[in-house]
Simulated scan of single mutants.
Amino acid sequence: MKPNQVNETLLEIDLNALEHNYRFLRSLIHKNTLFLGVVKAFAYGSDAVAIAKKLEDLGVNYFAVAYTKEGVNLRKGGITTPILVLHPQSVHFETLIKNNLTPSIYSNFVLDAFINKTQEKKLQAYPIHLKLNTGLNRLGFDEPELENIAHKINQSKSIRVEGAFSHLAASEDLSEKAFTLQQIEKFTQMCALLEQKLTASFLKHLCNTSGIINYPEAHFDMVRSGIGLHGYGNTPEIDKQLIPTATLKTIISQIHTISKGESVSYNRKFFAPKTMRTATLPLGHADGLNRIYGLEKTNVLIHNKLAPIIGNVCMDMVMVDITDIPCEEGDEVIVFGKGKSAESFANNAGTISYELITSVSQRVKRKIIS
């Protein structure tokens, strides 16, 4: 085996690449604009604590996770920076408060439940962020609700509005620019109404990675980035400025010679058109290489040559065509990452890089490179 070559399926996480990506994104915003690092879903399939620690050292102002449990794991890992929980459930409010996490309040039900919990615990001015619905129609208060929620907040001394935010639906798609500008205007108006009713200012944040890049006029007080920190900017031009933080590698377990007409894998979806060589790799859909990537839709990299995935992806294994690639059992294979974009790998199968990189199973070993 060559030096530094892997001998098992492994996800390498490069913290130097993370720093490069952070500094590039930071260069696109004003020096006084705060930066929130989104580290939900194991920091986009990698290692949330390792990623958050590095970003904390670099000066990130805030973190965001999807659920309370993710925030608790960061606190257990030693993260002290404020953490916004984007989709908290009322059943977890006790744990959320105990771990000094900031809830996103997105509905009257959640607002009432959180006020009750903070009053029960006799808290004063516990910070919350209000989620505003500007067109994604997923979570958030609609404009007609603002006066009523402002009244509830003004009546309670146990909470305070630290921030208000919304989410752009299509910031990466410039053909939807008119809709995005409409969202920005709506967000501005809703925040102005809230400030008037609450008689207090608060942090405003709207832009995700593509928003940072495409809509500098909408950076407000803070921006949020998740996928960009991991090396993907949603456009080929920006991708050239970024470095993938995670590289999924594996090895060749076995090589077969397949005769013309023989089938490969479950359900016999692939028949050899000629005598060919195949390599079996030790990862499958239980590792995050979902079945959509089979049937020659995409490929892996072996000795800088593309090897198409043939037949159906199995739970723990996948087969690739190596007929024209000189290689041996034990040789290294790159599934995605440096030298092989997760964006192209995913696009070839009709999905997106977000889904691919966040699907890497926790049974795949992680290796931190710093």
Rank of each mutant, 00 (worst) to 15 (best):
L28F: 12
K53Q: 10
T68A: 02
N99E: 02
E19T: 15
T80K: 09
T95E: 11
H30A: 15
L28A: 10
L28H: 10
A43R: 08
P88F: 12
N99Y: 15
G45F: 05
L96M: 14
H87N: 15
L58G: 12
L86D: 00
A113H: 04
Y106H: 10
K69T: 10
I97R: 07
A41W: 11
K117S: 09
D112H: 09
P103L: 05
L74G: 01
K53L: 09
I79M: 05
A48I: 03
H87G: 10
T33Y: 11
V49G: 03
Y106F: 15
H30V: 09
I13Q: 10
A52F: 00
Q124N: 12
L86H: 08
L86A: 10
N73K: 15
Q124D: 08
K98R: 10
Q124R: 14
I51E: 01
P82W: 05
N99M: 06
Y22T: 12
Y126P: 02
F93P: 06
K76G: 01
N32K: 15
Y44T: 08
Y62Q: 09
T68H: 05
T80A: 04
H20F: 13
T102A: 00
V85P: 05
V72R: 02
N21Q: 11
V39K: 03
L111Q: 04
K121G: 06
I105D: 01
T81W: 01
T102W: 02
R26Y: 05
N99S: 00
G37Q: 04
E94T: 11
L34K: 15
E19G: 15
G78Q: 01
L18Q: 11
L34Y: 08
L96D: 05
V85G: 03
L15A: 14
V60L: 06
L74P: 03
E70K: 03
V110D: 03
N61A: 13
Y62N: 04
N32D: 13
R75Q: 06
L101N: 07
K53I: 08
T95W: 05
T81E: 00
Y44A: 07
A66P: 07
A64Y: 09
T68G: 06
F109W: 04
F114P: 00
R75T: 05
L96R: 03
L15H: 13
G71Q: 00
L36V: 08
L58D: 06
Y106N: 09
G37S: 10
L96G: 07
I13M: 09
A125D: 14
I115M: 08
K40P: 10
F114I: 07
A50K: 09
D14R: 13
E56R: 02
N116E: 15
